[in-house]
Amino acid sequence: MTVYARRRATNAVILTLSLAATAFGLVILFLILWSLLKNGVPALSGDLFAKTTPPPGSSGGLLNAIYGSVVMTACATLAGTPIGILTGTFLAEYGRGSRLAPVVRFVNDILLSAPSIVIGLFVYQVMVVPMGNFSAWAGSAALAIIVIPVVVRTTEDMLTLVPAGLREAAIALGAPQWKVVVKVIYRAALQGMLTGVMLAIARIAGETAPLLFTALSNQFWSSNMNAPMGNLPVVIFQFAMSPYADWQLLAWGGALLITFTILILNIIARLLASWSSFSR
């Protein structure tokens, strides 16, 4: 074999392998989605949204878990978003030349990937133990801590994308800096910031680990924020690990619900980002 032929052959092998790697990733994605559809669709019925989680052997749905997930995700987003946006604003607008900003940015990136179960332990220590019981508030707090770094990151990224000209024009008109930020920069970066919030919601909607020892779960309907509250991820965990076929079916139904909600949120977030006026 000539040198040329050998080099071409090596090249072909390497490129085929890279193609195979990509195919592997895509195949796994479709396999997971396919299993979810195959096992989850039979569980979709009116009962799923109308009845609460049943004892084994009787019919029921996931109403209390869906309610709990929606409430806790909403509370966590409402609490975490302003904190994240203000911190992101500091990093983007006031961070230049400050010694604090790089440290905050570094720590934020670590929090972004920190194990969520440790966040659950932390909230258990500072909220569940002093309050004496598991509660939906504690669950919301744990989720809020996960929201913050996601929002900080996207807010900073999006604010720095706003063209300097806009900022300078507003300052030249005599606007104080806070007005420039709130009325000009925020408005210009609104879509990007919304993207961040949606990604954060998508991230916490399926988080299980931080809820295990904060919100716990609840087999019955409860709207008391000071008591354990049912939530989809933990119910899926308990039901899937159970030996009962009807519980496992409900777990698949819940899994299908969560995954497609999250995928749709992700896709909308990406579309929003690509429509936003300033792209990367």
Partner: peptide, 13 residues
């Protein structure tokens, strides 16, 4: 999107 799928879904799968 593989990264967006929650951990618990990987578990059940």
């Amino acid at each position: 999107l593989l990264a967006a799928i929650p951990s618990i879904i990987y578990g059940i799968w």
